[in-house]
Structure formats: C-alpha cells, structure tokens
Nucleic acid binder design. Sequence first.
DNA 1: AATCGCCACAACCGCCATACA
DNA 2: CTGTATGGCGGTTGTGGCGAT
Length: 302
Amino acid sequence: MGRIPCCEKENVKRGQWTPEEDNKLSSYISQHGTRNWRLIPKNAGLQRCGKSCRLRWTNYLRPDLKHGQFSDMEEQTIVKLHSVVGNRWSLIAAQLPGRTDNDVKNHWNTKLKKKLSAPPQVAHLAEAALGCFKDEMLHLLTKKCVDFQLQQANVPPGSSSGTYNHNNQNEKDGTVENIKLGLSRAIQQSDLITPYKPWNSTDATTTNLEGTSNCFPASTSGFQYPPPSFGNEGDVPSWSQSMCTGSTCTGGEQQGQLHEILEEHGEELSEGGKEMRNGTSIFSSDSVLWDLPCDDLMNPIV
DNA sequence: AATCGCCACAACCGCCATACA
DNA sequence: CTGTATGGCGGTTGTGGCGAT
C-alpha cells in the first residue's frame, strides 16, 4: 500500500499563485498562524494543497524574507558552507537571515555552481577566500610555532606529549614554511589565476597532510584551480572549504551558529570526508580547522 | 516579427523523521 | 508498540522573461 497523498489531487489548484491567493493565505496566517497546514487552505478558502501553502508561505510570503540579489558575503557563506555540509540547503539557509533553502538551492544551481566551474570568473571569490584563509592560517601557524618551540624546550627528548609527534624538526619547519610560502604565492598570484587546468593532469600532484612539498594545491606554480579533489562528491570544490573559516570573515553571531552546525555534523563530516583521510586534499581537513584545538591542526589524522 | 535557447525562479514530488493517537 | 498524519527537506520540473538569431 502506497503512501496516502497529502491532499486530494482532483480538487486542488496547482501552478502559479495569484495575488488573490497570496492575500488570502497571508491574511489567514497573520491571524491564525501556521499551526496546521492541512487545515489552512480549507479555512483560508484556498483550493490548494496544504503542502503547497506551506511552501508558498515559507519560500515567498513570509515577511522576513529577502527578495533581492545575493550579496558577495552571502555567496561566500554559501560556498563555504556548501563545501562543508554539502547540499544541506536548509542548514545553509539557516545561516543566511531572510533566505530560504529554496533560494539558496536555486542560487547555487544557477549561479554559484557555474562560477565555481569557471575559475577565471571567480578570481575575486578565490582571492577573498584566500584572504580570510591566509589570516587564519598565519595566526594558527604563528601560534603553533610558538607552542611547538615551547614544547620542544620543555619536553624531554623521546617523550610523546600531545598528538603532534613528528620526529624531525626540519620536517616540521619545512611544513610550516611551505604552507606560508604557498599562501604567500597564492595571495600574490590570485590576480593571475591561470586558465582552468584539469586536475587529472599528471602534474597536479596530490596534496598530502604531511605536506612537505604540496601544502597548497598550487604546487610551486602558485594558486591553481580547482584542487585535486575537484570533481569528487558532487563537484564540491574543496579549496573553498577553507574560505573564511575563522574569525576574520564571519560575524560573531554567525560564527557561533556555524560552529554549532559543524559540531552537529562533525560525525558525518568526518565520516563522509574519507578523501580527507587519504590525503586527497589538505583543505578537506578544515572541517576540523574551523574550531580546532590548535594541536589538531598539525595532527595528520584527525 | 517570429522563433529558439538560455536562465532564473517558483512550484511540485517523493522521501524521511517525528509527533501523536 | 504500531500505524498514520504531518512537517521538513532535497531533487527535479515547469514556466515566464529575455536576449540572440
């Protein structure tokens, strides 16, 4: 036995809503609220399915909705969150006041997806993202260097404290320096982003979390787009996962909400992010970069 | 002026989770 | 505990506007 339809298909109107219908629905909801969508169309004098009414209200009629174009900041937020939570449009929309999941979904499908697959056109996005990311990374790296030096000074040789336990001091320094170098180059060259270069080309070397040679997708030639994992998992550009990840980019309130999301989805993120574990992209790991305990940054397996 | 194709947005569909009797 | 109703979500489709030919 199949599922019972939410309403009788014969007696319900479908298709575009008229201004009259909008008025009926709006005025009814303003008086009675949205307690029972099944009853709303009946009581409001609408020949519509309750589900259709709910959609119309939540996606269009709600007074707190924005109807204009998406701002750059909103776009960055979408890109950033999409790279983390995927097509969880309601989650993403929850971070954008006045925007609905449908809005976000449509905007992604019609604009952002294309933008992200056309790198020269999104140089500014990449640049903005790198700006945010650079600040965050340099902050963390600076802190990490200090922590590490302190740790080296205090911890006797051979003892293992914390999760970060490389054996070779030069390797650690090299990692940090490589990341810094890559970031600097990326920033410098973000205006000169090269034409799209497929990542399956042989010189698109795999990044790895040990990161001694390829801390940045750009390898030695500067920022390159998209990164090695591009094309996996619904064409999510993983470089964007590092967009504006820290305090430098998102507002305090949103930042908190974002952290909630990340905490809420931490398990599935780490579950879904298998590429991250096999080192496909260093940037995939920033699901833990977000609110990371600093030690985790340098821990290859998080 | 007519037609075609593309784009953006609105709406629908089906599935899933949860509340509730 | 179980079955059903309902709300919510993501994917997909429909439709109108607009520019190119």
